[in-house]
Simulated assay, not measured.
Amino acid sequence: MNTFLVLLLIAAMIATLVALVRGIVTFLKTTEAELKGGDGPSASALKSNKMMQYRIFFQALAVLIVVVLLFAAGRT
């Protein structure tokens, strides 16, 4: 059980890192023309925002897995 949780934790941490990097790259690709456009958020801004939401989700998942691992370690 602990091995499975550790592997799940590693997967969640990697997913967090991937979402973070993709969000930053998308943010950096935003052009000045997109920023000055008054038609609402651009497609790249929406994608960057979505990537950061994924990062928060995966980060929360990783923290939850750590909590479960700590509880499991305390019971043995």
Rank of each mutant, 00 (worst) to 15 (best):
L70I: 15
E32T: 15
Y54H: 07
L64S: 14
G38F: 03
L61P: 01
L64C: 05
L61K: 10
E34I: 01
L69P: 03
F57M: 13
E32K: 15
K50F: 15
V67M: 07
F57N: 08
Q59T: 13
A60T: 09
P41V: 09
A33E: 09
A62H: 04
M52R: 05
A33F: 06
E32D: 12
L28A: 12
L69V: 08
F57H: 01
T31I: 07
Q53M: 13
F58I: 00
E32Q: 10
T26S: 05
E32Y: 07
A62D: 04
T31H: 08
G38V: 08
I24C: 03
V66D: 00
A45C: 05
K47Y: 00
Q59Y: 14
A62R: 07
S42V: 05
I56A: 14
A45P: 02
S44G: 07
V66G: 03
G38R: 11
T31K: 06
G40W: 00
G38I: 07
V67T: 07
R22M: 10
V68H: 00
F57S: 07
V63R: 11
T30E: 06
G38K: 13
L64N: 05
V63L: 12
K47S: 01
G37D: 13
P41S: 07
T30N: 01
S48D: 03
I24V: 12
S42N: 03
L28G: 06
V63P: 06
V25Y: 02
V25H: 09
I65M: 06
A45E: 10
S42E: 03
M52Y: 06
S44T: 14
F57E: 01
A43H: 10
Q53I: 15
L61N: 08
L64M: 11
T30L: 07
K29E: 11
A33Q: 12
A62G: 09
K36H: 12
M52S: 01
V67D: 09
F57V: 11
V68G: 02
F58G: 00
L70V: 15
N49G: 14
T30V: 10
I56T: 14
V66N: 00
K29I: 02
N49Q: 13
K29N: 09
F57T: 04
I24N: 06
V66E: 01
I56V: 15
G23C: 10
L61D: 04
L35E: 06
S44M: 07
S42W: 02
P41N: 12
V67K: 10
K29H: 05
Q53G: 13
I24A: 11
E34M: 06
K29C: 02
I24R: 07
T26R: 03
T31N: 07
L35S: 05
G23Y: 03
R22C: 10
G23W: 04
K36F: 15
K47I: 03
M52C: 12
N49C: 15
T26V: 08
K50Y: 13
R55P: 00
N49L: 04
K29T: 09
